[in-house]
Design a protein around this nucleic acid. Structure first.
Lengths: 162, 162
DNA sequence: CTTGATATGTTACATCATAACGATTATCAA
DNA sequence: TTGATAATCGTTATGATGTAACATATCAAG
């Protein structure tokens, strides 16, 4: 598996696919994919980057879909809980999942210059971390893996992506 | 290397050693280990857990060492920059480094029940994450690795550590 | 229709963090 | 010594992120 997010690709298609996948998953699991929740996912997919809850809320407010913080946070909780979006702890921001169809342990590559984020896959629970956890008697349920550095564009000295 | 933090050990000794190490490192690198910075490290070492900046600030205030947030955040910046403490992104909190003498890529085991944190070591830049970064042309400078789960005490159904 | 579960709307507040600016202190070359 | 410079500290004010609590609305099951 390789990282998505830095290279160009068909945004329109990836948005459609993510929404279709989310719809199907909700239907199968009897989850309520409400207009608000759907819209927040669409906003994240359209932004195609890590977005703060208040930034998302601004859009919802403009569209008459809710004006107070809990509106955004509740929709984001739903999306994160069900794997359609992830929280980037390092940025206190949220991003649409780029491969929501797989059971996955997401890991992120975060550019410290332009804040671009690419999602990739890691299994930190294997290897050193897993061994350390086992030795300590710690049961890993979830892992936050966020690499900070420079994305290809910013390494090249090009203008930052955004 | 194994995780420190869940098992009992000689707190008095580990505090002394961490302070001695920090002092020596600052002396060697001409860093200004001021009373405020030293005191914040002592507070973190005494707490022996992840502490919020405002919690640390409360102690500083009681001791007449500063009453406003920037006082705590500046000292914490210094400690984090120089590797004497780490920020736990998941908790928005700070913890003293438990092995400040080594050049290390810290990783943390965070109990979701009692918030206990153990520091261990991982090299996520090797393995899958490193391969993904290389494939994407991303240069990893630093990594946040935070495993969330249950610590030994909370798994045993015992009363939470604190 | 009622009940219970889920989702939404809103107020108010809690928590985490930093910009900006002036005062103080340390350093060091002239 | 003196003056320039950088680092540190003290404070005000504000920004940014996140949640508790409660009222209202919706809807499916009994």
């Amino acid at each position: 598996m390789h990282a998505l997010g830095f290279e160009h690709h068909d945004h329109h298609r990836c948005k459609r696919e993510a929404l279709t996948t989310a719809e199907a998953h909700c239907a199968r699991h009897r989850l309520n994919f409400t207009p608000q929740r759907r819209r927040v996912l669409e906003i994240l997919l359209a932004g195609h980057r890590a977005m703060g809850a208040y930034e998302i809320l601004d859009t919802l407010r403009d569209e008459g879909l809710g004006a107070q913080p809990p509106v955004a946070y509740r929709a984001l909780d739903f999306l994160v809980t069900n794997g359609f979006a992830h929280k980037i702890e390092r940025l206190n921001a949220f991003i649409a999942c780029t491969h929501p169809d797989a059971t996955h342990t997401p890991a992120f590559l975060i550019c410290r210059i332009c804040d671009a984020v690419a999602e990739t896959h890691a299994e930190p629970a294997r290897g050193m971390l897993g061994a350390a956890a086992e030795a300590a008697g710690f049961e890993i349920e979830q892992a936050v893996v966020e690499a900070v550095g420079r994305c290809p564009r910013c390494r090249d000295g090009a203008a930052p992506c955004r």
